[in-house]
Design a protein around this nucleic acid. Structure first.
Lengths: 203, 203
DNA sequence: GCCTCTTTTTGAACGTGTTCAAAAAGAGTA
DNA sequence: TACTCTTTTTGAACACGTTCAAAAAGAGGC
């Protein structure tokens, strides 16, 4: 229904009606309208994990793995593009359990990070040391940025998002490769130190 | 009032009461509760522009200029940190006139980009060519990222945000400096091409 | 079948943001 | 002062998301 009518025009009363239950009953199953919306996200997340398996088992080039996983994310989310803006809005409240950074979202977040860990570990490009530890989560942040761009992308078939994935994916992989070169070493080291610092538990 | 009670507890009825007008009357002045919230943002934006003048007139080191402007942004926004999450939420709807990417927000956006143009042009580090054209807007996007981090930052006095500004500000300036070196040239060129491509008007 | 406990369902009511027709107030002109 | 037009104000009403006490239904044991 959200697809046909959009978020705003789909009232909880209409949803209850369509499901053949009372209005109050919908709240037995979903804590709020936002939780209902978020169920769509959870589904596309599962779809994404599943869609990535074949790729990660057959492809070893880091760039292709990364770009493939990101593109799959967009593909599995595409049915929901129509109301992705609303999804973003519900996720934007830092205090909401639906925020990607929230405690409640940790399982989904960890699964995504685990997926990106597989991207890195199963590739022919070897990443070691501190960077290996931090890279999956950095890639997750990068993926969040891509999704954010996608939400705002009005191009046909979200062509621009795919373009962004290709180009930045290539760039990211190049950066990963040069990160071991001596001139880059201090920079990378500092960046990783900052990431660890900002991630440390607050006093 | 938003400061004392928080966004949710501050109803339009309470606001009307406090202002000594009727509930309906508040809508004569502000199109919605979100517009009311956004007026705070507009004010802090003006405060920011004003706060940056002294710095930009006296400092010429690019790094110090950039870090100073970003830190000033956080400082001028600090009074509103309490409900910054709600501000982010209202701005998160891509279709909302309050979104930083919206047509209606263009004036504020352009002013911010103009400010960052001043940061670059008035510095002793010379930036030329295509990069000079694109850099202010890229810096604006970077600033948006900082603000987003700030919104989620629960550290004392937002110390982490300042730390992030320092470290990433330094990194950005270093990247700007090395962008002219021959090994970086192709990368930078490609990045700029992508930016221009994604910014072109849609068919 | 009856009893007890748990789960599911209901629908009236609530609070909040918002709308809008009508009234009031303000401003300018003759 | 009266009239006309514009702006501001009002308050009842509306729509929507949500709540919750009570009712209904389900499940298990005797």
């Amino acid at each position: 229904m959200f697809r046909e009518r959009g978020y705003d025009a789909t009232t909880m009363r209409a949803i209850a009606n369509e499901a053949g239950v009372s209005l109050g009953n919908t709240y037995y199953y979903f804590a709020s309208k936002d939780h209902l919306i978020h169920a769509y996200y959870a589904r596309s997340h599962q779809d994404h994990l599943a869609a990535c398996d074949p790729l990660l088992e057959s492809e070893t080039d880091l760039k292709n793995r990364l770009i493939g996983v990101l593109a799959a994310k967009i593909e599995t989310s595409q049915p929901y593009h129509h109301f992705a803006g609303q999804l973003f809005k519900t996720a934007a409240d830092p205090k909401s359990p639906l925020s990607p950074f929230s405690h409640e979202s940790a399982p989904v977040r960890l699964e995504s990070i685990e997926l990106l860990t597989r991207v890195v570990e199963g590739s022919s490009t070897k990443v070691t040391g501190k960077l290996a530890q931090e890279l999956p989560e950095l890639l997750w942040t990068y993926q969040m940025g891509i999704i954010l761009y996608w939400i705002h992308d009005d191009s046909r078939d979200c062509a621009r998002t795919y373009r962004l994935i290709e180009q930045t994916g290539d760039l990211v992989v190049r950066l990963v490769r040069v990160s071991r070169l001596p001139p880059m070493r201090p920079l990378v080291s500092r960046a990783l130190k900052l990431v660890a610092e900002l991630r440390a538990p607050l006093p």
